[in-house]
Simulated assay, not measured.
Amino acid sequence: MTPSAILESALYVTDLSAAEAFYTDIIGLTLLTKVEGRHLFFRCGSGVLLVFNAEATKIPPAADARLKVPPHGAVGEGHLCFAATAAEIAAWKSHLEARKVAIESEFEWPQGGRSLYIRDPSGNSIEFAEPRIWGL
Rank of each mutant, 00 (worst) to 15 (best):
T85W: 05
G112F: 08
E36M: 08
S94M: 12
G123D: 13
R99Q: 09
V69P: 02
L7M: 06
P71F: 09
K68V: 00
A62R: 14
I133H: 04
C44L: 11
T14E: 09
R66V: 15
L116I: 02
I126N: 09
K58F: 10
S4G: 02
I89K: 10
Q111V: 06
C81R: 09
A18I: 00
E77S: 13
L67C: 04
A90V: 08
W134V: 05
I133Y: 02
A84E: 03
F128A: 01
A87F: 01
G123K: 14
R119G: 05
F82Y: 10
D64L: 07
A10G: 00
E104F: 07
R99N: 07
G28R: 07
V35D: 06
H95Q: 12
R43W: 03
I126D: 06
G78H: 14
T30I: 04
W109S: 06
I133G: 01
L7V: 11
L7K: 13
G37Y: 09
W109M: 13
W109V: 05
H72M: 00
A18D: 09
R114K: 15
Y12E: 05
W92N: 01
H95F: 08
H39Q: 12
E108D: 14
A102D: 10
C81G: 13
E106L: 04
K34D: 03
V69T: 15
A90T: 07
D25W: 06
V35N: 05
A5K: 11
E20P: 00
V13Y: 10
R66F: 12
A129E: 09
G45K: 12
L67Q: 11
S115P: 06
E88K: 06
H79L: 15
T2R: 15
Y117N: 12
I27S: 10
K34N: 04
A91K: 15
H72V: 04
A83M: 08
D120M: 01
L96T: 07
E36A: 11
D64R: 11
A83Q: 01
I133E: 03
G47A: 14
R38A: 05
L40V: 09
